[in-house]
Design a binder for these strands. Sequence first.
RNA 1: GAGCCGGUAGCUCAGCUGGUAGAGCAACGGACUUUUAAUCCGUAGGUCCUGGGUUCGAUCCCCAGCCGGCUCACCA
Length: 512
Amino acid sequence: MDESNYLLRARREKLRALEERGLQPYAYRYERSHRSDKARATFEAAESADELGEEGTTEPVRVAGRLLSWRSHGKTAFAHIEDGGGRIQLYFRRNDLGEEPYALLELLDLGDWVGVEGPLFRTRTGEVTVRVAGWQLLSKALRPLPFGKEEVDPETGERVVHSGFSDPQARFRQRYADLAVHPEVREVFRLRSRMVSEIRRFLDARDYLEVETPVLQPIYGGAAARPFTTHHNALDMQLYLRIADELYLKRLIVGGFERVYEIGRDFRNEGIDRSHNPEFTMLEFYEAFADYRDMMQLVEELLSEVARRTTGSEVVRFDGEEIDFTPPFARVGFVEALEEATGVRVLELDDAELRARTEAAVGESMKGLPRGRLLDKLFGAVVEPGLVQPTFVVDYPVELSPLAKLHRDNPRLTERFELFVAGREIANAFSELNDPLDQRQRFEAQVEARQEGDDESHPLDEDYLRAMEYGMPPTGGVGIGIDRLAMLLADRPSIRDVILFPTLRPEEGSAG
RNA sequence: GAGCCGGUAGCUCAGCUGGUAGAGCAACGGACUUUUAAUCCGUAGGUCCUGGGUUCGAUCCCCAGCCGGCUCACCA
């Protein structure tokens, strides 16, 4: 297969030829003087200061990068390399390089890493270019990258890519190749990284303490989801990969840290689609003495600031819509929104009526689901898709929120909000339940729901209850899905577009 | 999970209700001392996803399976 491939063979032969001529095809280092963008800026500065040499050149620079294109014209050749600063053109001349170094260029391939040295000049067509006086191979590529050909539309100035690397599965599986040939993909992940840095900066500036809590947990909790299970050999016990950070972070509030946050990986053993990956990144933050209204304000500030500092604007384009993160965000009651959408007093419906209405709205059987889950499904079907601009949905029914405090004005509701943007849930938050007796009852109700067939209900966590019994101050807590936020800010339609190595079936059988 | 679409050269794709495959780019050989989708001449490159079936003959038609994408539903 690969070993007999003529493309790979040709490159291995070149590798041998290089070695025979005494060239080291895998260098140890290269002393670079400029990144490509800095080199260009240096030339332009010298040019505008009228400090170019007689031939319109600068002092020699040393740049290095991956070979992207090659246009040979006999005794000259043009090429582009790409480095962390972008692309820069190289101009090779036999008269400049000498017979042997010029002849050796024929052993280069697209994808090779090279370092070059030479003065900068501007070509006839106006492009700042290195006039190569010497070059060095830094790493030989033995496998061709799936480069497309590019041209710049002279009318619009847009970059048009011809053919290229577009098979989604191959791009995710070989993300290294995807990144290597798609600068715009690299930019998505730079944006994601900036976003996370801005979140840390925002919370750190408000005296939040970043902490790390267990990923391997003897009892999972903090969300309604099925966990991954694993086994610890020495302890001979079953462990779960966490589905949420929540219960451990609140233990830290009990311990006296007033403001804590964690940005970490959660794992849920559920389906994969364009908004779900089995492992995903969650931000959770908890603040003592705050309630959910305080947290709503904090979330508004956080998101507007993070949007502005990572994209340059509080108004973000997503899927053709303009999403405006300028505070304050819209607020609607869970029950009010549901009643407005259905025209019924949903809390007055008995179980059978509620089930029938939900089944009609969702279009599938809701057999065995408890009231809370029915309300949630109904809400998902009739309200969520309409929530395009950032909207806080507040005050959820108590059945849905086993970790949230009862609403101070209505005991059937809890002090909880979820933030929806572009029809998706981005954040989930409560006035955290800090009454250990109430918490025990809520857990017991969940256990009952589990016995009735709800396999996503919360298990009872005695240690967490013990922590509550030591006393937890009033606390506001928020969870924000980092991947989904990255999708919004980067305007990417699939969670796989913002996860470097999304979960895939292993590469076997007919795949690849 | 359901529906729709797809799997052909390294990459992107053509391939006519059936006669054992083509293009562009990439590769290889050659020409070319300011090009930029460079250009020009030539060469090579294939488990047509897998397994059955129909047929004289299947990339093409039928069945089953595997894999992927999109839409819908759901867990963040």
